[in-house]
Amino acid sequence: MIKVVDLHKSFGKLDVLKGITVKIEQGEVVAIIGPSGSGKSTFLRCLNLLEQPTRGQIWIGSQEITNRQTDMMKVREKIGMVFQHFHLFPHMTVLENVTYAPIKVKGMSKSDAETQGMELLGKVGLVSKANEYPSRLSGGQKQRVAIARALAMSPEIMLFDEPTSALDPEMVKEVLEVMKSLAYTGMTMAVVTHEMGFAREVADRVLFLDGGQLIEDAPPNEFFASPKSKRAQEFLEKVL
């Protein structure tokens, strides 16, 4: 469970998040949508403290992570993140990418990490690429490895920041399929996306952000059928 209360984030004079309050239940999938620059990435990055919130509280389960005493590293172990541009480690093979953090951060044995890594690569359909370097993979394959790498830490929550935006159109589907099957395992997911089809089909709720504020929070059928705010209506007219 994620609970966010009155979250603010500024960069210098620029107020990017202006008081966001929202709750995401265990096992829920939320799609976060909104115009570019509305603060979607910043919101997501606050959830695993890649950005330090300026004000407000965030709870992950029963732990308040915005508390100064919180061990940020321990929090991040529990939260996986997938980036728009993958950020695979280019000097490591696919399998090494997937086993690095479990070995070095969790202290898992190499053989256990590799067994688990191969299993995860199986789940994303990339067993045959285990010993390739990332530069030899297509964008879609890279993103699937990035998902496997995050899952290797057995996170309780997965954050996705526009995971398909950097992909050629023909590769979007393979990544969305992996995310969909992950959603069906009961993983708690927060997904910033422009894929309205995915939001409609997989998400339990849609959060619409604009100007650093949470403008709407509704189930997808409700949101897409009859957005309440003018800003959401305008946004949907543009993207649909």
Partner: peptide, 27 residues
């Protein structure tokens, strides 16, 4: 080195010294 490398390492909970040694410096 692309700043995304650092972020990816941080998101995995990799501590700073390890991140430098295993991820950033080799690249």
């Amino acid at each position: 080195v692309d700043s995304g490398q650092r972020e990816a390492a941080m998101a995995l909970g990799v501590p700073y010294p390890l991140m430098m040694r295993n991820i950033i410096l080799p690249q």
